[in-house]
Design a protein around this nucleic acid. Structure first.
Lengths: 214, 214
DNA sequence: TGTACATCAGTGAACGCGCGTTCACTGATGTAC
DNA sequence: TGTACATCAGTGAACGCGCGTTCACTGATGTAC
């Protein structure tokens, strides 16, 4: 962990950055053994701290898990927003970039992804957690709205529905085929290609045909 | 559990149906507390048997979990096949029925669903497990093939790809919005409607337009 | 600039608990003759 | 049909272990004057 190195400057009786270090430790453990294989005690041990120390920062194990999930959603939202880039260079391509970012996050951050979506946390466990999750979805929502706006009003579908479809397809492909852990299922093509083709067909079905998008 | 009642007939020193009873107990525990909250010891307790007894039937906790997942896939495959009903009364409608069956399974069998998809089990942990999972996917594959066959050869998409898209969308909606446990996300419409609309748009994008399907 | 003091973030020892696993055992069941 | 015996599926006691949590404590930090 870079935390412990960084922390060494000011390390002594007071750790100086224990909260962050515990979160990093939790991520390591989740990545290694799944969400079940992370314990308060072992996180403390990894952080080089007594087993009582974490209680200064988190009420209990679930509180730490929720914090990990919240941070995950914040990073996720940031990545998606960066990929969307306010629709640049062009909304259709920007949406495809966003889809790729979705899969990339699932692949490179399996621990965050698991904590966010598969740790059995109720989405409204914590208002901060819910807000962070909404922020991530808002990017997909914004992208869908921009694309829908291209259609003439009479044939324009509800953009909320479109965003849910896009989210669901990206999420399905991510959890089944792009995840970065042992539960990934084999696929005879890159998951990115599968998602790109899926979005292409779907948007075509909305009337946002191929050439029209260039 | 119906098992313990049924078993009572022949209950005595020998349980008579311990294997089944342990699986039922595991499902109860998973449903109640998530995949992490199921222990060998507690399953034995629920089955009314000494903590050493399960070892006569399962090598360890993971072996039991894999068996639960395998059975889950078998039931899942059966439900999907029943909904598809070999394309009756008509392939398009039969596919929609299959999608509904997918969501219904996620909702009514959260324990199986979790064991199958979110217990971090490698899909190829056990050949039986892999076979059962393939069987479930094969139904979606078959449905997609039937629908693709309606398109003229030149414009016909690869049916494997289509089946993966359908699976991904159903799975995304199921895990995000239709799951039967606390991690379900709120949705301003029935997930069934969302999936139906999504498939409709997607198939439209393939050229399988609305009226053509009736 | 120095000192007193409140607050904060850690220690380390201790506890009760339930889990996974093993062991020698024993009661029930099935089968050969 | 009866008996002897092998096999099977359970018992129950025991073990070591790591977890979560608590407690009174103490060293470090920040601040008021």
């Amino acid at each position: 962990m870079s935390w412990s190195r960084q922390g060494r400057k000011r390390r002594g009786y007071h750790h100086g950055n224990l909260r962050e270090t515990l979160i990093a430790a939790a991520l390591d453990l989740i990545a290694e053994k799944g969400p079940a294989g992370f314990t308060f005690a072992e996180a403390a041990r990894l952080a080089g701290v007594s087993p009582a120390a974490p209680y200064r920062h988190f009420r209990d194990r679930d509180a730490l898990m929720a914090d990990v999930a919240r941070r995950g959603f914040e990073r996720f939202a940031a990545e998606l927003a960066r990929a969307w880039d306010e629709g640049r260079p062009e909304p259709f391509e920007a949406l495809q970039n966003t889809g790729r970012a979705y899969l990339a996050f699932a692949r490179t951050e399996p621990a965050y992804f698991t904590a966010m979506f598969e740790a059995q946390l109720p989405p409204d466990l914590d208002p901060e957690l819910a807000r962070a999750a909404d922020q991530a979805f808002a990017v997909v929502r914004q992208a869908s709205e921009t694309l829908c706006a291209r259609l003439p009003k009479p044939t324009r579908p509800p953009s909320l529905m479109v965003s849910l479809h896009v989210w669901a397809m990206a999420h399905g492909i991510a959890t089944l085929f792009a995840r970065g852990d042992a539960a990934r299922r084999a696929l005879p093509m890159p998951p990115e290609d599968l998602l790109e083709a899926g979005l292409l067909v779907y948007l075509g079905g909305l009337g946002l045909g191929g050439d029209q998008n260039r």
